[in-house]
Amino acid sequence: MALGVNPGLFLNNPSSFRPEEAGYRPAILGTIQLIGGVILIIVPLGISAATYLELFADRTRWYNRIIELNIQNLAGVPSIVFGILGLAFIVRGIFDLGFVVAAGSMTVAILVLPTVILASREAIRAVPSSLLDGALALGATRLQAVRKMVLPAAAPGMLTGVILAVARAIGEAAPLLLVGAATFVTFDPNFWDGGYSALPVMIYSYAGRPQEEFHVLAAAGVLVMLVVLFFINSIAVWLRARFERTW
């Protein structure tokens, strides 16, 4: 099978002693659930935060300036720090979710949130103010003008931000290790309980095994992730080009 792909790569559970049959099934399912959760969190949170900061916040207030500064700084914090934060406050602490996919989603969501907020603010800023003025001049309230005019015009740019954030989230392994993504799981994950794994974590696990076959398996996993990431980034580029507007 020179160029063929063995479907077992995607469909089989991992195995510690039969590398020729081992697969990524629980990790793929884990990553899908994880990313689904991340999207559910970052879309509403990221867009509302960006909208507030860009269109409603009074920049002369000290708390808004602090929020602004923090978001910019957060984008540069190493991801492992978010892992520790997730362990302390989401797995244990306030949320006390345990080592479940939901905890992983929340942790990674916080990690990529600054990306979404910054991209969304950029998108909102690119919408000419004449659009907002035009709606306000007709007697629309600020909320109506923002919801019906500014946000739809900024949507493609915001979507691009979300997609790039997702691309980053897919590749994150370090924080997930801390919030419980196990390196070896042989059952399908459940969002709210039980153990789970994710693609980068499992690749990391396979790569660390002594047998040569597992290294090949790890390489195959990396290729799969690369293809997925390339695909996602292409969509982002395509969207940006498709909706780019000259006002």
């Binding site: 004449s130 035009g134 709606a135 306000l136 001049a137 007709l138 007697g139 005019m149």
Partner: peptide, 17 residues
Amino acid sequence: VQVRKVIGMVFQKPNPF
């Protein structure tokens, strides 16, 4: 907002939605 309902405005540069 009520004022702007009654007093409309047209801008220098046409700004259709």
